[in-house]
Amino acid sequence: MKVLKTVSLAILGTALAVSGTAAQEKTVKIATEGAYAPWNFTGAGGKLEGFEVDLANDLCARMKVKCEIVAQDWDGIIPALNAKKYDAIMAGMSITDERQKVIDFAGPYAAGPNGFLVEKSSPLAKMPGTGQAYNLATQKEAAEKAIDAVKPVIKGKTIGVQGSTIHANFADKYLKGTAEIREYKTTEAHDLDLAAGRIDAVLADATAILGTLEKPEFKDYVLVGPSISGGILGAGVGVGLRKGDDELKKSFNDAIQSAVKDGTVKKLSEKWFKIDISPKG
Rank of each mutant, 00 (worst) to 15 (best):
S164Y: 08
A110P: 00
A171L: 01
P113I: 02
K274S: 13
H167R: 12
G46R: 09
Y134F: 08
D254T: 05
D191P: 08
L12Q: 09
K5N: 02
F218L: 10
W39M: 02
S227R: 10
S121T: 14
L124F: 11
K274T: 04
A111I: 11
V224L: 08
L81D: 09
V222K: 14
I232S: 05
D200F: 02
D73A: 01
N40V: 06
I256G: 09
G211S: 14
W272A: 04
D262F: 00
K176I: 15
V7P: 03
S227F: 04
C60S: 07
Q162S: 11
T21W: 12
T264C: 09
V224P: 00
V153N: 06
A31N: 01
K26L: 11
S19G: 10
D148N: 14
K266G: 08
V18A: 08
T186A: 02
A168R: 02
A208H: 05
L117N: 12
K267P: 15
L12G: 14
S251V: 12
L192K: 06
E183M: 05
V18P: 00
G230S: 02
K243F: 05
T14C: 04
R99T: 10
G236T: 07
I277E: 07
R242A: 15
A204K: 12
G20N: 14
P113F: 12
A110Y: 01
V224C: 11
C60H: 02
E49N: 11
S8P: 02
I277W: 03
K101G: 11
A235Y: 04
G34K: 00
A143D: 00
G131Q: 01
P279S: 13
V18M: 03
G129D: 04
G115H: 07
G236L: 06
M63F: 00
A110E: 03
V239I: 04
Y134P: 00
L248Y: 03
G163T: 12
L248P: 13
G231K: 00
A17M: 13
D148P: 14
I103T: 09
L192C: 09
D73I: 03
I256A: 04
S122H: 06
T6A: 11
P108T: 00
A71V: 07
R62V: 14
K64M: 03
K215S: 12
L48R: 05
K215Q: 14
L48G: 11
P128A: 14
K176D: 06
C60F: 01
T138M: 05
P226R: 08
L55S: 06
N169K: 15
V3F: 03
Y109C: 02
K5Y: 06
G156Q: 01
A22H: 08
V150D: 05
L223F: 15
K274Y: 10
K47R: 14
V153W: 14
A61Y: 05
A208Y: 03
F170A: 03
D254F: 00
K64R: 09
P79C: 10
A201Y: 10
L203Q: 09
I277C: 07
D148W: 10
A133R: 15
S227E: 12
A204Y: 12
V53I: 03
I78W: 05
N82F: 04
V153Y: 00
